[in-house]
Design a protein around this nucleic acid. Structure first.
Lengths: 238, 238
DNA sequence: GTATCTCAAGAGCGGTGCTCACTAATACTT
DNA sequence: AAGTATTAGTGAGCACCGCTCTTGAGATAC
């Protein structure tokens, strides 16, 4: 194989990748509950037990799917954010929110897989932590850039009191300890963002929020204010 | 039966209530995926098809379970909030948040049932909307009482711009249209609260927020400020 | 040409939701 | 008291699920 030893037996007709792709298709079309090994095997023209040569259990397949899904969301949002002038932290944050929401709206089942109820008996392995942090770390970078260009957070004693606990997280993102209050607020914004998206996608806004597009823009404004983000024009004016 | 007509056939050994209770037990112990009609029937000493005399499908049972679960959360939070002096809107809100979180922590599977991924193919019937609104309407009442006792929201043009869309919701809660901005902020707080709880329960805070108790208190302070809530002492001083 | 290794096939276990013909049990009618 | 209508639980069965294990097909190494 890749390590110099030559593969000996029968040629595989399916691979880990092909199984994963088939699972991703099933997920996109019908939700996590319809990801059955038997249906995947059927779609690959193979018998169900053949899957077990490549995945030892359905959970292992789901884990790969979760990692892949986090990566997909991360790529989508990273690409969208890269198209905004880096000095416009306010717009960068807005684009992070809008593109996350757009991805979720286009991939509701994939969103539910990573931000809905965890699959029973499933514990997130270390391999998930990094890709899962993409949106959060994009927010962290916006916070850092805003601070570097002179942005300041609105006064909030409670936030500053909570800040010391976020020094390690700030350091994990490569930020100065002085940014811990901003990181604390960033975590609040981060969980609020996904709370908002989950409420929208899971139907909790029915009869409560009609125009979710407009409401999202309000939330962006609200969260930007709390993070001390502003447009370059605003700063030069104020 | 209750309507004058007399029941004719064989006496039922199970009832809708007994089935629902058995399902609630299964849910509390092992999560929604383990709520199987066969297991419930087994625990009731009856054959699985007997359930269908009382519930036409598993989905119908889950719907009842969701309604019951919303009611349970609503009662828990309502009772907790009732023990706080009604003039202390800040503390009332804090107790709403803390008791919601406490209920969620004690009933993780029940929480996941109502705030996690919706069960596939499931559409919330009208019967769910009212009980699902309990926490939201408690927040609305706090907002109204805070406004009635002279509390004001911090200035926020974006929120006021979004407010007109929330006039109908304010009216649905029996509030004046002038409170629409507060309602808009209330909805944001409401979804943020459940975003926070979902992140905690679904494991997204692992490696990010260590002391969730303390972090929740920060969020309470942050959200209270945005809602213009204050303690009576603070108002008389300021 | 045989031994060895690899992979898929296929049967099978126990689980699921759900349907349907059947029967036991009850109450009203004759 | 006998018969009938009505109701509820039984049990067999269908199609699906995850998973295991034995078997045989295919490819390389010796």
């Amino acid at each position: 194989m890749t390590d110099g030893s030559v593969r000996r037996g029968r040629k595989p007709v399916i691979s880990r990748e092909r199984v994963l792709d088939a699972a991703a298709d099933a997920l996109a079309n019908a939700g996590a509950d319809s990801i059955s090994l038997r249906a995947i095997a059927r779609s690959l023209g193979v018998v169900s037990s053949a899957i077990y040569r490549h995945y030892s259990s359905r959970d292992e397949l789901l884990t790969d799917l979760i990692v892949q899904t986090h990566a997909s969301l991360g790529e989508h949002v990273t690409r969208a954010e890269a198209s905004v002038a880096s000095s416009d932290t306010r717009e960068r944050f807005a684009v992070i929110v809008r593109s996350t929401r757009a991805w979720a709206g286009q991939n509701p089942h994939r969103y539910a897989l990573i931000y809905g109820t965890p699959v029973p008996g499933y514990r997130a392995p270390q391999s998930i932590l990094e890709p899962a942090a993409v949106v959060g770390s994009l927010i962290a970078r916006v916070i850092a850039d805003a601070a570097a260009s002179g942005g300041t957070l609105p006064a909030d004693p409670a936030r500053d009191a909570a800040a010391p606990a976020f020094v390690p997280l700030a350091e994990a993102f490569g930020l100065e300890p002085e940014l811990a209050p901003a990181v604390a607020e960033g975590v609040a914004v981060w969980s609020q963002l996904f709370g908002h998206l989950s409420f929208e996608l899971f139907g909790h806004y029915v009869g409560v929020v009609d125009d979710v597009d407009a409401y999202t823009e309000f939330l962006i404004a609200d969260m930007s204010r709390r993070l001390g983000l502003s447009r370059p024009a605003e700063r030069s004016q104020g």
